[in-house]
Design a protein around this nucleic acid. Sequence first.
DNA 1: ACCTGAACACCGTTCAAGT
DNA 2: ACCTGAACACCGTTCAAGT
Lengths: 216, 216
Amino acid sequence: MNIKTNRSPLDRETIVARAIEIADEEGVTALTMRSLARRLGYEVMSLYNHIANKGELISLMVDEVAAEVEISSQGPDPLTDVRRMAISMREALVRHPWAPPLWQRELPRAAQVERMEHLLGLLAASTLSPDLAHHGFHAVNNHVLGYTLQELEMTIAIGTESELAAKTQTFLEGLSPEDHPHAIAHIHQHIAGDTSSSFELVLDLILDGLVRLNDE
Amino acid sequence: MNIKTNRSPLDRETIVARAIEIADEEGVTALTMRSLARRLGYEVMSLYNHIANKGELISLMVDEVAAEVEISSQGPDPLTDVRRMAISMREALVRHPWAPPLWQRELPRAAQVERMEHLLGLLAASTLSPDLAHHGFHAVNNHVLGYTLQELEMTIAIGTESELAAKTQTFLEGLSPEDHPHAIAHIHQHIAGDTSSSFELVLDLILDGLVRLNDE
DNA sequence: ACCTGAACACCGTTCAAGT
DNA sequence: ACCTGAACACCGTTCAAGT
């Protein structure tokens, strides 16, 4: 009796879905071909019948996160839709904290291309010049990615997880108030602060700046 | 005769320096404890007499890059110095393309803290409100990091390296002009474009936006 | 105090063999 | 066509032994 029951048939889609589960629950470092196979109820080598290698797996996982980004097109004007997509992208990235560092390591796949195409379309439909639309695409993209990336690192280091919070605490105590007053104040602002409003503040700053530059 | 000649004595400083050499020349993936030991002329295990583990090594390497960022304070006004530091930071990151993805994975070390302290000091000395100074720190930081990160990925994927350029070429050909006109145009803009002027354009957009928001 | 040989517990991946 | 046992070539790291 070789056939194990209670296991779904193996295909790319379910492999990627389980891989995302592991990464969400236990972090990317816990995602190995072996741990993935174990969760699926198959042997490691079976995975290679459906994906070329781990790099392809990760690329597929990232594209699945990209697919969660809302394609917005109902706004009163194109830049409002750009704004909504930026917020939706941040939400998707926060849902999958392992994704930001891997976001653009491979060439974009289907969902990523779709998101990119739509975002560029919105910018082209706006009042922005082609040149500013190009810069705007990257400015928005980088802001979302950079902000989320740093926010997640900060949350990991400072958040309520007692173990790492202690590490940060000893770090903070290592800073002398006379030598590093601003750094100390900055970290305290973080512990008290509301990050998501700060995200939108800078996002609007960028969008407004683009429009202003365009109208000059 | 156990003593090998022609090798510098082992210490943290030279270990980190050689590690950076390997990463610069052959990429981070080529940096293993074994390859590092080989370059130093020692055995692998000797490294552990000077550094705790590979994580600490990488953290030390990143701090060395942070030390290359110019601490600017001669400008006509504080925000000009902020601008200069942002440009200097980008230059340091471009010099060490492996650094951006690792930039804030660990708690900041001495040089990183110094850079942070000075940057925050400049923002505090500017006309910006404490709140906007806080947001400004992250906006500038994220822009530099995000922009450099995406620029480096793009360069790797699109640059003159024939092998990967071909990969991008087939990717481009996979996009149909009727379905993805904007994406195709965007990539062509990249191949032709001047990235470093775009970096400064968005940087100024952010700095001007902060001042404007502050003066409202 | 610093260096190192041997070994351990992992990785991703290949290949030939099974059904 | 898909699954898998055994094996390979790597990792980072530990520990006891050397000097």
